[in-house]
Computed example of a mutant assay.
Amino acid sequence: MFTCSHQPPCPSSSDTDREAARVLASHPEQGWSLLCNGVVLFDDTGELLPDGAAIAPHRPRVAA
């Protein structure tokens, strides 16, 4: 389990704003970053949660 020591604490991996957690390790050459809450965030906006669940890419919609 990941424990955040930041103040205020980063959102947990189960929060809807989990992508707002701080980056612990960044690997732009490979297209991913590890967040403080254990989430692996991919450049295509997909996510891998600490429990192994995958979140499909969710790019913002462009207003027409």
Rank of each mutant, 00 (worst) to 15 (best):
S26F: 07
A64G: 11
G31P: 06
I55R: 15
W32T: 03
G38P: 01
V40G: 00
P11S: 04
A54P: 00
A53E: 12
D43F: 03
S12N: 05
F42G: 00
C36N: 09
P28Q: 01
G38V: 01
L41D: 00
T3N: 06
F42D: 03
Q30S: 14
S5T: 15
P60L: 11
H58M: 13
P50A: 11
D43I: 03
P57Y: 10
A20V: 06
N37I: 04
A21M: 01
T3K: 07
L35F: 05
G31Y: 07
A56K: 14
T16P: 10
G38S: 02
H58I: 04
S12A: 12
P8Y: 12
C10H: 04
L48P: 02
P8A: 13
L35N: 04
F2G: 01
A21Q: 01
A63F: 07
D15I: 07
D17K: 15
Q30M: 11
N37Q: 06
D51A: 11
C4H: 08
F2A: 12
H58C: 10
F42N: 10
P60A: 12
D51E: 13
R61S: 13
T3Q: 09
A54E: 12
R59G: 10
R22Y: 05
S13D: 15
V62C: 06
P50V: 10
Q30N: 14
S13L: 02
S13N: 13
A54H: 07
S14P: 00
G52C: 07
D51I: 10
V40P: 00
R18I: 02
L41T: 00
S26Q: 12
D43G: 09
A25V: 08
W32K: 09
D44G: 05
H58S: 15
Q7T: 15
E47L: 14
S33Q: 15
W32M: 06
P9K: 13
T16Y: 08
L49M: 12
D43T: 06
W32S: 08
L34C: 04
T3G: 02
E47C: 12
L34K: 03
P9F: 08
